[in-house]
Each structure stands twice: as C-alpha cells, then as structure tokens.
Design a binder for these strands. Sequence first.
DNA 1: ATGAAAGCGCTAACAC
DNA 2: GTGTTAGCGCTTTCAT
Lengths: 339, 339
Amino acid sequence: MTATLKQVAERAGVHPGTASRALNPATQALVSEQTVRRVQAAAKALAYRPNSMARGLKTNRTTMVGIVVPDLSNPLFPPIVRGAEEVLSRSGYTCLIADTDNDAERERESFETLRARQVDGLIIASALRDDAAVREAAAQGLPMVLINRRDDQARLPAVTGDDRDGIEQAVRHLVGLGHRRIAHLAGPSSLSTGADRARAFRHLVAELCGPDATDMVEECRAYAVDEGARAARALLDRAGPPPTAVVAGNDQIAIGVLDVLRERGLRCPQDMSVVGYNDMPFVDKLSPPLTTVRVPHAQIGAEAARLLIRWVGGDSSAPTTTTLPVDLVVRGSTAAPAS
Amino acid sequence: MTATLKQVAERAGVHPGTASRALNPATQALVSEQTVRRVQAAAKALAYRPNSMARGLKTNRTTMVGIVVPDLSNPLFPPIVRGAEEVLSRSGYTCLIADTDNDAERERESFETLRARQVDGLIIASALRDDAAVREAAAQGLPMVLINRRDDQARLPAVTGDDRDGIEQAVRHLVGLGHRRIAHLAGPSSLSTGADRARAFRHLVAELCGPDATDMVEECRAYAVDEGARAARALLDRAGPPPTAVVAGNDQIAIGVLDVLRERGLRCPQDMSVVGYNDMPFVDKLSPPLTTVRVPHAQIGAEAARLLIRWVGGDSSAPTTTTLPVDLVVRGSTAAPAS
DNA sequence: ATGAAAGCGCTAACAC
DNA sequence: GTGTTAGCGCTTTCAT
C-alpha cells in the first residue's frame, strides 16, 4: 500500500540504511548531497511515509503523548487541548486525547490504554487531587505535566492559571463597588481548583471584610449549573442578612445562581452581583452579561506542552510550576449594592 | 521498563510463541488451559503490556482510528467525539483526534499525520464539501465514514442529522404560530449542512408561503455570531416588509440575530421570532431562551463509529448513509407575530 | 560516504 | 499443544 523505505532505496539505487540516513534530518549530514537529493526524489515519487510503528519499535519512542481531560464537553478543555496540540504537533508529536468523564474508573482505563500505547509523556488535566494512577506512572518515570492542579506528592511540573489572583481580582472588584457581604459558591474541595479558590477567597475576605465575613461559603458537589443552583438556594435560605454579591467557583455555578435569582424574583445585579470564573464562550450573551475571570486556557495547554517536550527530550532539571496570569472581565452582572 | 512477551514466556517456562497464543483471546483455544493460566499469571506478575507497535508492525493494523473535526471548541463536536470514542474504545480502538481549525491546509496536514500513523480508518466531521485529501484517501481504500456531510463523489458512508426535517419542523412551527414572512440566515453554502438546510428551507417555504416568500435568505460566510449579526443587519436593511421570523443556520448565527435585534431596539419574540439549530449548551439560558433544533450529536458519533468498525472489520457491503432524527425544542424565542 | 547486518517485540505459518 | 522460524519496516553500529 504505502511505499517502504526499502522500495525508496531501490528506486534511488542505494542501500536502505543510506536511504534512512538521507531522509532523517539528524543524520542527513552523513550522506552526500547528491544522494540525499536522489533519495528524496524517490521518496516523493513513491509518496513515501515512514512507518511510525517500525520506527517506534526501533527507537523505543512513539512520538505520541497522551492528554487526559475530565470532560471534553466542558468548554474549558478544548482550548487547552488545542493549545497543547499546536505546540506538540510542531515538534512532531501526535496527541492521544482521553476523556475520563470525571470518573475515577474511566481515568484508570484511559491511563492503561495510554500506557499500553507507550506514549512518551502525558499531560493531565483531570483534576482529582488524589490519584493512584498518576503516582504510579510518575514513579515509573513517565514524563508528565499537570494542568489546573498542583501535585500533592509526586513533585510533577504543573501549569495553572493564577487562582489566587483571579479570586482576588473578583473580590477587590466587588469591594471596590461597595460590597461587604460577599459569598463564595465553591467548586468541589476534592478538586484542586475548588480548594484553592475557596482558600484564596476566605483569606482575602477575612482581610478586607473582617474575619466573620468568611463563613458565607457553600461548597458545590460539582462544577455544574444545578449544583450552583442548589448551593445558591442554600445560601439564600440561611438566617441573617443575605450577601449582596457572590463569587462563583466557575461560570456554570454562576449560571445556576442567576437561575435561582430569577426564580426568587431577585434582580442581578441590583439585588445581587454575580461573578463567574473561566469566561466560557457566550457568557457575555447572558442577561445580564456575566462578569467573570478570564483564564488563558490555550496558553496553559501550550506551556504544559513545552514543559513536557523539554522533559521527554531529556532535560531533567527540577520540575517547574508555572502560574499564568488571569484577568477579570467586568460585564453587567456586577454593580454597586443597593444602599 | 515494561516487560516483554519473551520475559513472560521465560517466567512461565514456555516459548514466546506459546505465550503469545495464550494471551491472545482469539488463539487461546489452541493452548492447554493449564498453560494459559501459567502464562497469564506470569503476565500479571510482570505487569506485562503488549507492545502495540510491535504487534501493529506484524499485523499491519494499528487499532487506531482518526477523527477529524473542524473545531473542537465548537460545542457541537465534543459530543460527537465522545459518542464515537465510546463505541470505538469498546472495540479496542484508540482515537487520534485532529482539529483542522476549519482550515484546508491544516486539514491536509492532519490527514498526512493520521495516515503516517497508519490509522485503520477515519471519521471525518470536517465539512468542506470538496475535499481532495478525502478523495485521495478513499481512492486508496482507507475506510472512512463522514459526519454531517454527504459525499459528493467517493460514495462513502455518512451519518447526519435529518437537516431537511429539522428545518421543516422549525418552519412548520413558525407557520403554525401564524408567521408568513420567514427568513433564513443560511450557513456557508460551501458546507454541506449550510447548503442542505438552505435548500430545505427554500423548498418548504415555497410550498407553505408561496413562491415569492423564498427570497428572504441571506448566506453567512461562517457559522459564527458576527456573521449572523452581519446577515441579520443585511436582512433588516432590505426594502419591503421585514420578516416576522428567522430560521438561523445554527445557534451561533441565531445569537448574532438576537444581538442585532437588541441593537435596533426590536424585541424577541414580540417583534421577531428566532429559531436556532443544534441546541448548544446554555442556549436555554439566553433571554429569551432559544428555540432550536436538537441534533443527537453523541448518537451520530456512535453510529459513525459502528459503521467504521464494521468496515475496518472487513464487511464490505454497500456504504450506508444514516440519517438520525432531530427534534425542535420550543423555548421563548418564538411566538405568534404581532398582528 | 555507503553497505552489511542485527534486532526492536510481536505474530503466524509451519513443523513436530 | 507447543516449539521453531521468519519477518513486519525501520535505525544504527560496525565495516569498508
């Protein structure tokens, strides 16, 4: 079907070994220029495509890397994947994308599959904080870079958005508008981002609004609209004065809050300001358009890819943890509190 | 690093060939039960994972299939990929996902990469109607299934939502509400879905509203919000009575229409009804919530995967074209026209 | 600068 | 039922 190196060599009148050298940029220098040209011409004529399995078998590398994401349908992840893929493909790597569906069992299977395919490295964006599969693979020395989560034990390089600063920008924005009773609907504390953002929130609110202001935190069991709604109801049903503003753990949760406000006849932003997180596509089309924290997802993916390539390439310097800056995007869902 | 078959065989005290047979479900019957057990135990003890490259080199199959999508960030595609992946992984296939970014050059490169990786087959959801790369691969007998586009020449199996019926449901819904001046903001005619939906629209509107009703069609140059907005402005700037309802080529275009209505002080649905297409996530959170056509994306992916598996498996019956039913989801963006 | 030869890990056709 | 052997397509060491 596809031509083999042997056929190319034959057509060029050289030995397969020579053809191999002529076609490989790294060894091309060892071959006379004329031969290189002849071999290349033959390769082109036969539409030669090197068999990556044969090469991989010989070199013990696949030039494939796995990307593990918890849910491709979450608009967060496609840009990460794209960013990573772009960098990786430029270095000759092909991506194997595994969607774990936020399920530990599926994650295990994905890992198994990826390792069976002998990927050269892994980018892991699935954010379970305790993760046997990751630890095991790390122990075996498989290059891995984490995204959106810190590494608890294995000392792996990680790339994240600056969660602390994102929350800080959101809270400072609200405080600047005059809010003092600010709540947080946190993501699951089992996820790195959920825990980090909640911690940052508590810390900053204690500083800016006093220590008793920190108890207005409700944890969602998932980064999902209905969980955001549930938590919002719980928040509003509490005794005492309700918050005038909410910082949501992500945009889906924020949408849940908007739903509940509507359901209860409260207006946003007049009765309650709402801030999201991630700046998903089309949250600017909601009414009101959502104020949210923009995270450079594509850059995060790209940076993770760069770290991984370096590691796979043999650079074994200390694992780097990179934090990328985020930006608050102010839209219509935040305003000064009714006085 | 990972144990080889030879090591497993050694540990089990058998020849590598025997170990191979014992581990392969298809040939397991040729080996005594006792040996199978011994080999399996050895494999487990050594955490043996077959080297897929070596196997592939021998069998000339990779058990990898490529999935080519135009834009992973378009919420349309992740469910398709997931649906396909689920079916494929159950049959032991791994997916190579290529995002072409709607770019012909990148599509060519992706194709090249995928073929260099010797995928066993391809699912193609990138919808350029004329496509040299696809034709070439088809000519070489590579199993391929198309999604969301018909095959112009190569007679390939295809899986799509029922575009004609989707448009028909939308138009009948509007006519039932009393609309007679109905416009269509079509997707690019270079894409299969754009052309098909526009054709279906013209056909049905001619039938239901009279032949002169069919000229209210504006073509968008992309399935994008700003193109929808541009086309909507063009539509509203036309001489003569404006339409009372718009069927958009997809949800992004519909969002562009909503933007323009707001920009011009027109209300939806009172002044203009709007119908989208695809039922993207969160279009039910717009105001008004968008009436749209729901397409079973995951099933489309799954069905394409099934067809592909059948073909890769050697079944060479005539290419099937499958059309899956779609459903109009009525929400707040459509109502009876102001009389 | 190029040819020869070995071998990556596996499977399958053939022997026994 | 199991061992033997050859070879998939490539890279790479060793000669020349």
